[in-house]
Amino acid sequence: MSRQASRLDAKKVNSEFLTLTYGALVTQMLRDFENVDDVNKQLERIGYNMGMRLIEDFLARTSAPRCLEMRETADRIQQAFRIYLNVQPTISNWSAASDEFSLLFDTNPLTEFVELPSDLSNLRYSAILSGCIRGALEMVQLEVQSWFVQDQLKGDNVTELRVKFVRRLEEAIPAGED
């Protein structure tokens, strides 16, 4: 028995474990809240909290220097996705002012097995990702907005996550919400 099970790819199991646990959380929230918008907000918030913790690990792991412009930040975000979710989003669709860009995902591990029921078309299933980006960047004094433009779950060809620079935060402002 054990010999057979050890053939299972540990990395794959890790990622599936994460995917399934996240799925269980989303469906639990759908039972807890009547309004799907509240679920979206909660997921984003959980992502925000996770982002604030993950950035510490990311900085320690990569010992990356401070980003001077948005293009560098975009590269770091891309790198973080590779490290933590084992996916490589493409950076594209820069705005003319270079303060806004898109991350394009061919695959999204969080939605690997998911098929959205038709009555949940306004659920932002992967809202945790946009929350994560916002939380992580806030810890390095960057206020951004992040939202989904396209989603494979809704039938789009790619999943597109948009990130927009808002402002640089003062060092003195303590990070955190509520």
Binding site: N14, L18, Y22, I46, N49, M50, L54, R61, Y84
Partner: peptide, 17 residues
């Protein structure tokens, strides 16, 4: 690296619940 992601998610799920 995935483990820390899971640990963070687990901590958030605990708080949420």
């Amino acid at each position: 690296s995935e483990e820390i992601v899971f640990d963070c998610l687990h901590a958030e799920i605990v708080n949420y619940c």
